[in-house]
Amino acid sequence: MQHPLLQSLEPEAHPNIPELRIGDTVRVHARIVEGSRERIQVFQGVVIRVSGSDKTAGSNFTVRRVASHGVGVERTFMLHSPRIEKVEVLRHNKVRRSRLYYLRGRTGKAARLKEVGK
């Protein structure tokens, strides 16, 4: 059991992040700080890993997208980071495991996922 003092420091769920499921296609609006300037960068891809939950400190999720020339790019975001503006879930995909690392070895048509219920 967790000590009540530690419990009291656990973060509240991020107001603009819905529940993320593995395999979801998402758009992450991340706040980028460059010196004194701030801008928002959008990163769209598939959630291939969620570690922890929205109730535990230090939890994060990884989004994979295939950028130009077929280069895979993965970014890991902290689930409670105030630097995340919001996350939109575009669609839920049907997957059968909790870590989609197998997508790394696939390109093009083979890397597609089926939408849930279709």
Binding site: L5, L6, R31, V33, P82, R83
Partner: peptide
């Protein structure tokens, strides 16, 4: 010593230790 966790300060996650 109670234990460690992390908190966000100015957008950065910092490792902290809780002491009673």
């Amino acid at each position: 010593k109670v234990g460690m966790t992390q908190v966000f300060e100015e957008g950065l996650a910092i490792p902290v230790t809780v002491i009673e």
